[in-house]
């Protein structure tokens, strides 16, 4: 089965087409074009270069974030529309899972950290398991300083991965000698990992409902936060 993967939740956007034999085509960009400008031409490029058409696709995979709101929406909206038009199944995966998956061959506890801007990071903890990773916590949003304290209090060695880990590298490294930060090449969620992780779910028929699929925002809109605060102070 050929699967198209779309990842748009960070400043780096990527698309990939692959099957159980591996990725057959991919494209990636992290500056210049907006995600909206990049996406369809990149998919067209991958299809053309691999000698494929849209109708050869048997499934869609999309990264749901957490990440940048506008990018996630473009990715999810595009994936949904493609799946709906082709009437193929769709699966959504978390961006943090994709980043953690890149360092699955470690023996340490993995903490995937993505930049959420406004001095916050999205993160989740994982443990490596045979052939993959196992998530141990919810997807969360936190100030990097507080996450560093949380990491320092853990007894085991922790491998941090993701652009959020790199952005606050010094802060995390100062949390203790048991912390290691993975390099630049694994710092963004990638559509190739997305395709790889989505395939088993598609074969299991563990599909997501097209109509219910939505990005993982984790953060309320600024207006919502303000409104909740006003309401709280009123009821207090």
């Amino acid at each position: 089965m050929l699967v198209l993967g779309i990842e748009c939740s960070t400043p780096q956007a990527s698309v990939a087409i692959g099957s159980e034999q591996g990725v057959v085509a991919s494209a990636l960009v992290s500056r210049g074009a907006t995600h909206n400008e990049f996406l369809l031409p990149a998919i067209r490029f991958c299809l053309d270069e691999a000698g494929l058409g849209y109708r050869n696709l048997g499934g869609l995979a999309v990264s749901l974030g957490p990440g940048l709101f506008s990018g996630m929406r473009v990715g999810v909206a595009t994936a949904k529309a493609l799946a709906q038009t082709l009437s193929v199944p769709i699966v959504g995966m978390a961006s943090l899972d994709l980043v953690a998956y890149e360092v699955r061959h470690t023996s340490k506890t993995i903490c995937a950290v993505l930049d959420a801007r406004r001095n916050e990071v999205f993160y989740a903890f994982y443990r490596p398991s045979p052939g993959g990773i196992q998530r141990m916590t919810d997807y969360r949003i936190e100030q990097p300083g507080r996450l560093a304290i949380g990491i320092a209090s853990r007894p085991e060695e922790v491998l941090l991965v993701g652009n959020g880990a790199l952005l606050y590298k010094e802060l995390f490294e100062s949390a203790g000698p048991v912390v290691e930060v993975a390099g630049m090449n694994q710092s963004f969620p990638n559509a190739c990992a997305l395709v790889e992780l989505a395939l088993p779910r598609l074969y299991r028929e563990d599909f997501d409902s097209l109509y219910d699929l939505r990005p993982l925002y984790l953060r309320k809109s600024a207006k919502r936060i303000e409104w909740d605060r006003i309401r709280q102070s009123r009821s207090a």
Binding site: N36, I43, V74
Partner: peptide
């Protein structure tokens, strides 16, 4: 932000 959603879906449908 809202326009982007409609345009992304419409362009995708037209592409297929």
């Amino acid at each position: 932000g809202s326009l982007l959603v409609g345009v992304a879906e419409a362009k995708s449908i037209a592409a297929v």
